[in-house]
Amino acid sequence: MVIGQDPMLQNIVKTTLEMAFTSSILALLFGVLIGLVVAYNNFPGKKVVVVILRTLMGLPPVVVGIVVFILFSGTGPFGHLKLIYSVELMIVAQVVLITPIVAGMTETSLTPIVDRMRPTVKGLGLSVPKKFFLVLNEGKYQLIAVYLFAFARAISEVGAIQIVGGNILNKTRTMTTAIALNYNTGDFALAVALGIILLAIALGVNLVAGLLQMGLKKRND
């Protein structure tokens, strides 16, 4: 099976990558911001917010899928947007799923950095955006790991995107929903082959991230 010669497979891989990169990057933006705000500020009820974030990290994908489906289906409050069974709506569902994971992991990994830096930052009297930037800069190494987790989650998800995307051939079919379908049709060999391609993509992304982390470490040493 060669990707280059099979337009159906090309489309599946393209949809998968578009969905996984867009949703993981959006979730990274939202999640890091939330995680950073929670990690940096001490406010009443902070512990409750952290517990809520960590609980949301375990959101079951099918539940998110069904809720997003109901909201965006014809009779739902956002039905007029006509986003049902589209890659865009798959990205929406993924962002809902992954943002709490990014936020929770960011909070956990940035809190020790924030605690360490607080006296210095206070002494310098920096503006809020500058303070945040400084913390993020210190936490780069950890944030790469957080992104990798977000990407892994995005590319391996099947329950939510099957519901809101509909697994439509040449439109919303991704590698995971194609694998699930191939199980149902009994085409196990094709399912395993797709699984191998999926792993290869994940490996590629991890290698790039690993190199980035190595580069950062060297600079810091």
Binding site: G74, Y85, Q162, G166, L169, R173, L181, N184
Partner: peptide, 22 residues
Amino acid sequence: TYDWYVSAGQGMGACLTMANEQ
């Protein structure tokens, strides 16, 4: 393949829900 022919690759219930939506 045709624009009007949607190959859903899902069970009967999911396909009927899709037909109802579309």
